[in-house]
Nucleic acid binder design. Structure first.
Lengths: 233, 233
DNA sequence: TAGATTGTTAATCGATTAACAATC
DNA sequence: TAGATTGTTAATCGATTAACAATC
């Protein structure tokens, strides 16, 4: 059995955000490795596959308090278990999806959320044709049942996938029903009380990073070519 | 007209990633403000609406080299124009989507990408029923036409929305066709040459951040209650 | 002028990387 | 033992925040 130091609640509460964003990456990667029969893995191997610095991987692994063995590496299963505990993947959290258009349907059809502790247990839509049907096995309700469903199942997380102009209204409905956290896919800013957690899924931000990296690389390559040309000339 | 210092190419190439991720956020926010008739805006107002520190907003605005006026603020349109230039939104980049299931369809139906410089001009799918049809006005081709379509239109960006187990194969096809950047929505790590830009859209990472923030807040609230209870007792 | 806001420089904070000892 | 890998401490790097001058 892999050695495991006592968890440090303070360290876990104050986890740096960049690290917190890397942990699910490790988790997914390690689950995939386990499926391929890998039982022990070194930090340098992880770093290489995920394009990270090996020391950073060791620092992150240290957060899990799973000890590795010099000359061999870390126990994959132990890391998976501890990451799941730290990220609270074992406590399934109920969530509802408001807006069952293309994006909402895609989320409702995605079967991978369970592995990350999220249970999408209901969808809501204003379209009477959708109401009463199921999308990816999840039942779709009319908007005016939102309050009762959320209260009855003590749902904590609301996912907003409605058009931009309806997002704030839906947000208000969710908060009125007692929701504590909002996962917002609508491309707009939501006004909420301070104690409500809002996570904006800004696909444009991600796209911009990609786009900028591409432009920058091409700029660099072009200036390299010019430099080459002039040194040859 | 708003004052505008000369762009600084070095500063733009070496833009810090956290800042780069905030710029599209400002862009979207400012476009929305403009639609509502706002012409001048202060850094403190932006900061308040986007939950940022006002000094940070001013630093970020300084990156655009748009000068604000003391006592009034920044010209909204000037900021929008300069952000669009910095993020290269004006040069429409062609992209293809491989995998036209729920998520791929959602992307193809999303009409907002044009505003962010991305033109999804073709979809590919192995399902013969989809091939020849259109999803959100974008034509769907069979996979074996990927190479010719990508070459013909000099497409630089490939979007992968196929199931996990097909992602690496699709990635290889895209690279063979000359694609330089991959936007990967499949929950798996892709092996690529060093000069290829890969942006992983890890929805699980985002979800985990939300989930952890929720758990942590509830932990804090519970320990606050206990502290309250004992101080009262 | 007084006051509000920008914008810059310095200080702080936090994350990443380097160096190296400890361990198997 | 030799060598490879972990794990910790120190150094560096970079981003955020604070302080305050400049400007309208």
């Amino acid at each position: 059995m892999a050695r495991l130091k006592k968890p440090d609640p303070a360290a876990e509460l104050n986890m740096p955000q960049p690290a917190l964003r890397r942990l699910p990456q490790y988790f997914g990667y390690l689950v995939q490795q386990r499926e391929q029969g890998v039982e022990i893995i070194s930090s340098s191997r992880i770093a290489e596959d995920l394009n990270l610095h090996p020391v950073q991987v060791r620092k992150d692994m240290a957060l899990t308090r799973v000890s590795g063995k010099p000359r061999t590496g870390f126990n994959v299963q132990a890391l998976i278990d501890e990451l799941a505990r730290m990220l609270d993947y074992n406590n399934l959290k109920n969530a509802v999806v408001v807006g069952c258009g293309h994006l909402g349907s895609a989320l409702l059809n995605y079967r991978g959320f369970q592995g990350y502790g999220l249970n999408l247990m209901a969808g809501f839509d204003s379209d009477p044709k959708l109401v009463g049907s199921r999308v990816g096995e999840v039942p779709i309700y009319p908007l005016d049942e939102l309050d009762s469903v959320v209260r009855e199942h003590q749902v904590q997380i609301g996912v907003i996938t409605v058009p931009r102009d309806h997002a704030q209204h839906v947000c208000d409905l969710l908060l009125a029903a007692g929701i504590k956290a909002i996962w917002n896919f609508a491309p707009t800013h939501l006004s909420t009380p301070e104690d409500i957690i809002v996570q904006n899924e800004n696909i444009a931000a991600s796209l911009s990073v990609l786009s900028k990296r591409l432009s920058d690389q091409q700029l660099r390559q072009r200036s390299d070519q010019i430099a080459e040309g002039s040194s040859q000339g």
